[in-house]
């Protein structure tokens, strides 16, 4: 039924070229499937304000939180495909959505523009005995299953980071889950957990001020947090980790496939300009996000490896029951 509808709208779109020629002639809705003010929301708003300048149309950001971001994503997937409802989402949650059984469609059924990459950062409490990432990895090796990692829960950005640490150490950690990133960081500050592998952006200032110790980032290169304060890449100590990197959250905007090419070209142009806006770059710099704009084709290629890695981390942890192979996801 949905496919018929999609085909029908596709046929309609080819039948009346004037329709796509004057796109956009009204406000565009950009759905963010999380609350206002969150990382995805801020990234989306920042891109939206740049894109609306080029498109000459207002882009309304609509927040529809619920079901770990799936509710809003499905809304856009089921909406009329006319180019007026776009989605902004973090791709860890987005690409693993079919594994939760929410939908049969994968990222391959969408046109995606990737904007930013936010790496995981490994931190330990200020009074922790571990001073380097090697100390921590050795401790996990020495006491498998006893070193605690505080994350925002199964399938969260932190969980993915912790799984990379597990793969590097070749031994398991003890997963302590919290209701969100904030409580996980608080637990690290108070020393309740041994380390925290959430996204670096969540505690950049805590590292700079010395309230926690930053051990490594899960990006491929070192990250300068503040002048003279560099967080080394895990590759410095463990070059073998290369195949799991870069690990972190990737955020972009997307729309189900099937729009006429001239509308997509307009989005291409608006997106390219938006990610070069000074305000957007400043926003990314404050948050320690890497701006890595990728067009439609490039995003698909990138996501093939990214999604496979994310999917199998979840599957191996028992967080999802649908085999990623069902959707042709490749094991890293």
């Amino acid at each position: 039924m949905k496919r018929t509808l999609a085909l029908l709208s596709l046929a309609v779109s080819f039948a009346c070229p004037a329709w796509s020629a004057d796109w956009p002639n009204r406000n565009i809705n950009l759905t963010v499937p999380y609350g206002a003010g969150g990382t995805t929301d801020l990234t989306a708003r920042s891109i939206a304000s740049g894109m609306s300048k080029v498109l000459g149309a207002t882009i309304n950001v609509v927040n529809t939180p619920g079901a770990g971001g799936s509710a809003g994503s499905l809304n856009v997937q089921n909406a009329k495909l006319d180019g007026y409802s776009l989605l902004a989402n973090g791709l860890l949650a987005f690409t693993t959505m079919p594994l939760n059984g929410y939908t049969e469609k994968t990222f391959r059924d969408w046109d995606i523009w990737i904007a930013t990459y936010a790496p995981n950062g490994i931190i330990v409490p200020a009074n922790s005995p571990y001073n380097t990432i090697t100390d921590l990895i050795n401790a996990i090796k020495a006491k498998p299953g006893q070193i605690t990692a505080g994350t925002a829960g199964i399938g969260s950005g932190g969980h993915f980071g912790a799984e990379v640490i597990k793969a590097v150490a070749g031994a398991d950690y003890k997963h302590i889950t919290y209701q969100g990133g904030g409580p996980a960081v608080t637990a690290t500050l108070s020393g309740e957990v041994d380390f925290c592998p959430q996204l670096l952006a969540e505690y950049k200032d805590l590292i700079i001020s010395g309230k926690v110790k930053g051990l490594a980032s899960l990006s491929e290169s070192d990250i300068e947090l503040a002048p003279g304060k560099v967080l080394p890449s895990i590759l410095k100590s463990f070059p073998d980790a290369k195949k799991y990197l870069p690990m972190g959250e990737v955020t972009g905007i997307m729309i189900p496939k099937g729009l006429p090419e001239d509308i997509l070209k307009k989005i291409d142009a608006a997106f390219e300009s938006a990610v070069k806006e000074k305000e957007f770059l400043d926003f990314a710099a404050v948050r320690s996000f890497t701006v890595m704009p990728k067009g439609r084709a490039e995003s698909q290629a990138f996501l093939e490896t990214f999604a496979g890695r994310a999917a199998y981390i979840l599957y191996d942890a028992g967080a999802v029951t649908v085999d990623p192979a069902k959707y042709g996801f490749k094991r890293p």
Binding site: G37, D41, L42, T186, L189, D205, S209
Partner: peptide
């Protein structure tokens, strides 16, 4: 002081602070 919100409304408020170029937290 820590960029850790004490309640749900404060969490949204903190995000808004960030949006307006303030960096609540230890710095």
């Amino acid at each position: 002081s820590l960029a850790v919100p004490g309640s749900a409304p404060a969490a949204v408020l903190m995000a808004a602070f960030f949006m307006h170029n303030y960096r609540p937290g230890p710095l």
